[in-house]
Design a protein around this nucleic acid. Sequence first.
DNA 1: CATCCTGTAAACAACA
DNA 2: CTGTTGTTTACAGGAT
Length: 683
Amino acid sequence: MMVESASETIRSAPSGQNGVGSLSGQADGGGSGGGGVGTAGPAGGSAGRDAAAGADSNGEMSPAELLHFQQQQALQVARQFLLQQASGLSSPGNNDSKQSASAVQVPVSVAMMSPQMLTPQQMQQILSPPQLQALLQQQQALMLQQLQEYYKKQQEQLHLQLLTQQQAGKQQPKEALGNKQLAFQQQLLQMQQLQQQHLLNLQRQGLVSLQPSQASGPLQTLPQAVCPTDLPQLWKGEGAPGQPAEDSVKQEGLDLTGTATTATSFAAPPKVSPPLSHHTLPNGQPTVLTPRRDGSSHEETPGSHPLYGHGECKWPGCETLCEDLGQFIKHLNTEHALDDRSTAQCRVQMQVVQQLEIQLAKESERLQAMMAHLHMRPSEPKPFSQPLNPVPGSSSFSKVTVSAADSFPDGLVHPPTSAAAPVTPLRPPGLGSASLHSGGPARRRTSDKFCSPISSELAQNHEFYKNADVRPPFTYASLIRQAILETPDRQLTLNEIYNWFTRMFAYFRRNTATWKNAVRHNLSLHKCFVRVENVKGAVWTVDEREYQKRRPPKMTGSPTLVKNMISGLSYGALNASYQAALAESSFPLLNSPGMLNPGSASSLLPLSHDDVGAPMPLPSNGSSSPPRLSPPQYSHQVQVKEEPAEAEEDRRPGPPLGPPNPSTSGPPEDRDLEEELPGEELS
DNA sequence: CATCCTGTAAACAACA
DNA sequence: CTGTTGTTTACAGGAT
């Protein structure tokens, strides 16, 4: 009864604080009840436990967490890789190197939307997880753009050549000239194909870290570039000093130009339908997930293995040292045999790859749309600063936020097969780490109190929070309030609040004991939460006055403010055509179920700015939906100003029971209910 | 640096 | 007895 699934499911894994070690026993979900366990010496010891366990080989980590971390890692890698790639881009010998070099710097920083460079940490402070994710996407998009710029340049040159030849060959017979043109056009076409393929390959390689042999360790460096602070702990940290070898990668990519012509794979990303079964074969030769450049993939040298490089196992998160290939194979067979874990990891990897491919396609289309919109002929040489387009700040952000724009229902999000992964499909690359690794309690919640930011952000990103195991940037108090205010009655029982949390946030489906305690703690602690005795028990309500009373927001340049501004920009300032382009671009590509970006899933359609986004349809809460709570149409859930009526009611009237009616039928509190208070929030 | 705010842990009581 | 609900205390760490 009542014990909603959450309490059971995972029990461990508290937010992945850093592993402090201290494998002290206790730490079971029960926490509070036992009483006896208490004190357990070292503060915070219990918290770190799980993470630490994950790091070790003793399979403590649940498959779910593995999936999470792996995804995270892969995405990080991809990101890093793209970054490197972009910076390496300048080197293609030809004349535009200078340009592109500077160009790389500019757009990125601009994309950050802050005149001054922000450190990732700062960014994380300022931005909410979804925004961070969006930013990352933006960055990637920019990288891609730059790559495309590069290719475009080459196309330019071809064009130039063509022209010059045309002129030079004036005397030549027309048909010859026509042929030449044709040839050039073909070349151009090829170019484009290559470009796409190259991009694709970049993505793939960045993720799959294939074929280390190819270049003396280009990719090896990547894993370690991955946010050293979080992953390593979980995946068994690695400290190997990496060699700087980014150019080899780039080289490889460029070399492509000469040969490859098959760009087909791009159009049809591997469907990876049967989630399992392709991975480690019993004999130890894992079928590499992404066949990498189709046919040519078999080039791997006899003495190498796609998953083996630099003396270590490249299995995601493994990095076990192996002296030689034989040892590695052995290791592969033992450690990465066909089991749930490997399977899950494989699946994740597939998803990651697929996701990135989709994203690539999406970004490409977006680029097209952008260029179309800006009347840029594809061949027209553009000054580099261009890509950023007129409205630097807002647009770049809005684009980002919307980018994922996977407006399709999340229904299929979860990997069908189940087995080991109740996990949420993805997590924003950058912020996964942000929210997880950070040692202590996740501070820096956006200070709610600011009226509706929470509701708006929630509305906008609710899909994200629902699916991604990311800690929401709100305080417990604000969340509780939100939960309560979202209901018609403006009242919830404790358990219903719990349910709301678990329903709305994947994050809270995990370590229940902790946050439930926190919820109770907050309910008791804050005067703004008023407990009202009811016939069927007690319910909690919100005293808005009290709530608003709390320390005033302090607008000046606080991160919160910045954040709000940003989000405001991003969501509000979209221009229609742009949106259209985005939407257009994203729709067709997203038909693949497994992948989507929760990050902004909901952002595109419903809302324009602030609160607007009503409590979202949210039909998808499969399991634990309490009876009430149903009305999706109920909008404006958050009456920030709520004020009098409710307050006085809450005042906990002397009479023992009075008003509240018998359980069923009408809401006891009749009182509020209808005040719609449309014009609220947002000073 | 002091203070406030928040998150986390935990002890404990009342109750079902 | 166990688990839930509430209350309270303590502490750590970020923000002001």
